[in-house]
Each structure stands twice: as C-alpha cells, then as structure tokens.
Amino acid sequence: MNEVKLTPRSESSSWTLAIRRSLQRKLPLAHLLPDRQPVFVGSWVYIFGVIAIAGLIWVVASGMLLAFFGPMWWHQSSVGRFVNSLHLWSVQVFFVFMVLHLWGQYFMASWRDGRAKTWMVGVVIFAFSLVTAFTGFISQQNFDGEWIAVNAKDATNSAGIGTLFNVLNFGQMYGLHIILLPMLVATLVGVHVLLVRMKGVVKPIGKVQGGQPSNEESAS
C-alpha cells in the first residue's frame, strides 16, 4: 500500500488555509447557529426582522410561480390570481416589518460597537427593495402597470437616468424585477444576517458588561 504523502507547505502561501482560519476565527459555529441569546433579546421588537425575512421567502416563492406560468395565468386563472395576490400581500408584509425593524434598530442605535457594516447593508437592502417593488408594479402587465410606467418616465428622465433605467422598456424592468434585483436583495439579506451572527445582538444603550466594554466592543 502506497500512501500519498502531502508535501508540507508554508502557511503563508496557502490562501485556502488563510480563508479557513479567518472564517473559523470570525464565524465559529456557535455564533452561526446560537442556541442561546442574551436576556435583552426577550422582546417582541426582535421579531420584526425575522418576520420580514419570512415575508421575503413568500415573495420569492410566489414570484417563482408567477415567472414560470406567466401573465395570462396570473391575470385569468383563479389560482394565478391567488398567487398574484399572495405575491402582493407578502410584499406588504416584507415592507411593513422591514420598516418596523428599521424603527426598532434606529431607536436602539444598533450601529454601535462595530456594527456599522450591518446597519449600512440594511440600508442598501431597503434601497434595492424599493427598486425591486417599483419594477414589480411596472411588470404587472395591466393598465395599472402602464400608468405607473408612463408617469414614472417623467421622474426618471428629469433625474437624468431615463436612458439607463428606461421604465417604458418592459423587458428591462421585468428582467431586473425577476432576476437581478431579487438575487441582489436575497444575497444582501444573507450578508446582513451573517453580520448579525458575527457581531451578536447589540446591547441596550448604557448596558456595559462587568463595568467595562468587551474587546469586541472596543474593536469598533
């Protein structure tokens, strides 16, 4: 039996090892999948974010069905109209609870203690979600969608982005709505949750453990 012998290599030259160690250091499994939470997390305010994510899951699931079966289905069949409504109302849930989550995090100043990146990613998610919803209203394939697009063209033209982002170009709006923007929002939500897991939930204002901030806090 011949054993394959691996040649020793210096740690500094191995980028896979460097990435693995960095991930192990920054994101241990206990942080990624915690089984316990700080006592101050016992509040309904912390539920808003996860309800928003639940809404997003329904948005994506119903949107996949709509994309598969197409406009004739979602306008004319009873099941299609139901899924179309499900898509609309899960968007309402997503936005309502995203805004409630935003209020909660704003009033607890959750960008503190090195969590600025988490906050900024959340801001970007909110911005891209608005564009995603807007392109969705344009993609309805009815008079409502056309009315919104025709009015919106004046806004985009006056802002100087009409040629790049042409709201009267259905193919562009629909493509952005069902491919590019959902992928972006879903990826950023994943990054947002990962950042929350890496840093933990921010302590209430004025609460300092053991009289001194932890190393993690002072690292900000």
Binding site: P28, A30, H31, P34, D35, R36, Q37, P38, V39, F40, V41, G42, S43, W44, V45, I47, F48, L100, W103, G104, R197, G200, V201, K203, K207, Q209, S214, E216
Partner: peptide, 23 residues
C-alpha cells in the same frame, strides 16, 4: 411597534445574561 415594546415576551429558560453567543 408600541405593542411590541410593552407586551411581555414569553420567558425562555435558555435565555442568558451574556450578550455574546456561548461556545
């Protein structure tokens, strides 16, 4: 939002004092 602030959250025996996830 106001209800979420004032309505008590069901207590959970596993909730701990520490802010950091437990290893």
């Amino acid at each position: 939002f106001v209800l979420a602030l004032v309505v008590p959250f069901p207590s959970h025996s596993e909730i701990v004092e520490s802010a950091e996830p437990q290893d």
